[in-house]
Design a protein around this nucleic acid. Structure first.
Lengths: 344, 344
DNA sequence: AGCGCTTACGAAAGCGCTTTCACACTCGTC
DNA sequence: GACGAGTGTGAAAGCGCTTTCGTAAGCGCT
């Protein structure tokens, strides 16, 4: 057997079926204008010789790629994999393939991924995850995406507002307010905040929400320690160590996402600190394992799957006026990791 | 501004730069035979008008797509997202784009995803996750993949053996043996097993390992309850409920992956069963959160990231003799969820 | 029998790119 | 000062497909 003959082409199918390229193409596409008997024969021949249409040729000749791109910060992160799940659901439903790229939380790389997706002429691009507060970066991707849209591409983003594209905006600020109010209502005043990179808009928004809650109690973010590390378990781990060292009097720690909160819990367990006995811990997102931790994690549920689905649906809609959408909903999940302040 | 003019083409760049298509192409590809001054000018023009080469046209004319495909059962599952992470690492290193598809643990869909990837003429396809014991399905994908290889495509699989392609084979059986021996060494004899779908080869392999450990103690799988549910948290949840109901005398539960073990822990917590006081729990894989659960989960670590990296590396190697590879390594992570049997 | 009308199919153009081949040039050489 | 060897550039073929347009056959009708 030839070691590397090339893949069967439509011409091969046509020849073997004794029809022209046009007829073969129409038959396989299920298009009108071919008698059923001929079409069936062509299909059979195609199956026989293992013909799989070349998407590149098809795209070049035809139009739509039936592929959409999804860019996430980190596929391993449950927050993003749940969003991806939502996107995949809608895509599958519509017979679209999803090309997933991950930017590794690197803005430069993100731009590169956007370019890659544009080069693939995907029908739509969905970008998930916090934007960057650096205006230069924001501007550049804005430019590229706008150009993409002008050539007929569809774009939707999840969780960033600067861009001139459709957006699904999670309730980051309200969520911050809710979790802040919850912790405050339990009597905590010495609260430490563990935030991700200050470059992320999500961080800014969630902090703003917490700030609002603090205000309601006559407090301010300036009164309490806010530590910026990384939006990961390890970031939470490192941050909690530092917080414990520098501020041993804290009675509560709010991590700005669940991954960090998990890191916090592990540090506290390591140091034998009772949760919530000595320190209460809260997170954001309500990732799947949050309920399975011990103690189960108090957090704010954001509808990640729905957000992903909504973003793609939005992007796929016929172009029209901006459909910027706010308010995805959120829900306090008060679990065992938070409790009332006790006398120490 | 035109609502939907098409994207700039190479011809536009060439025209604006006052050169031919050939020169423009060479300049942008960084190919020899163009004076540096001309090349620089072309590149500048391209940047100016926001030219992004059409991958489809390039592929059609040229050859390699610089894209590799990855098929996973479920991207949300940490087992797979860690594998993906390994694949992405190697791909990024080599300037390749990864197209991730998820089959949703549906063999039929998996075949569809393989076809999609072939249609995209990806340079390589990596399929992660257990194969299916159904020989018909196996045969069909085998056929398709073999054909793909004969036309120059590269393929590697992770965790399945039937296929006539390169494979990275996790130590499923040794891992089963190790975890089985561990649990037995703690004195447990009334052990329940929670397995995923019996259609998965991974399940069969891990069970075989456990069986071997049992044999060493003069026991057999036939002596203990083995329940087949789903390889997910919910599968573990449901399975644990049933196991508890039907076999209230169990002192240990081995789940065939960590996701299921997490479900088990949650059921036990709900019912107020002490772990490992009353029942010990063990899993497989050592996903990231395993150490963060309470109690921390005893499990067998498999090097998922390395497996992903190894698979793509293998696939990308120049075609030669089969490089089927066994023994990826494994390590018992004895943590707090398992303990010695106590008198009850 | 001749007319238009529909229907089934084929020839060929063209999607945007890469690459081969041929064609000018400019040198250094005998 | 004519020669071959380089060097930089362009014309054109072709990758595998879709689609427009044209044509031939089949049909009912007058």
């Amino acid at each position: 057997m030839a070691k590397s003959r090339s893949a069967p082409r439509l011409a091969d199918v046509a020849e073997r079926a004794g029809v022209s390229l046009a007829t073969a193409s129409r038959s396989l596409a299920g298009r009108e204008g071919v008698s059923e008997s001929v079409a069936a024969h062509v299909r059979e021949v195609a199956l026989q010789i293992g013909y799989v249409a070349n998407v590149h040729a098809r795209t070049l000749a035809g139009g739509a790629t039936s592929t959409v791109g999804l860019i996430v910060h980190e596929i391993g992160d449950p927050y993003f994999s749940e969003i991806a799940s939502g996107v995949l659901g809608v895509a599958t439903e519509r017979g679209l393939t999803v090309q997933i790229c991950h930017s590794g939380r690197d803005p430069g790389n993100e731009l590169h991924q956007i370019r890659t997706l544009i080069a693939h002429r995907t029908d739509a691009i969905v970008i998930a995850g916090s934007g960057y507060t650096d205006p230069a970066l924001q501007e550049e991707s804005d430019r590229v995406l706008t150009a993409f849209q002008e050539t007929g591409g569809r774009v939707a983003v999840i969780g960033r507002h600067h861009l001139s594209v459709d957006a699904v905006l999670p309730d980051n600020k309200p969520a911050g307010e809710v979790i802040g109010a919850h912790v405050l209502s339990l009597g905590h005043r010495r609260i430490g905040i563990l935030a991700g990179s200050p470059l992320l808009t999500t961080v800014a928004d969630r902090l703003a929400g917490i700030e609002a809650a603090l205000h309601a109690e006559g407090l301010s973010l300036d009164d309490i320690p806010v530590l910026h590390t990384e939006f990961t378990r390890d970031g939470g781990h490192a941050g909690a160590e530092e917080l414990l060292r520098e501020h041993p009097d804290l009675t509560a720690i709010i991590a700005l996402n669940d991954a960090m909160a998990i890191g916090v819990l592990s540090v506290l367990r390591k140091h034998g600190v009772a949760v919530p006995g000595q320190i209460s811990v809260a997170g954001f997102d309500d990732v799947a394992v949050a309920a399975d931790l011990a103690p189960s994690l108090t957090t704010v549920k954001l509808p990640m799957v729905e957000m992903g689905a909504a973003a793609l649906t939005m992007a796929l809609k016929p172009a029209s006026a901006r459909r910027r959408r706010k308010g995805t909903g959120h829900q306090l999940m008060a679990r065992d990791s938070t409790g009332p302040v006790r006398a120490r």
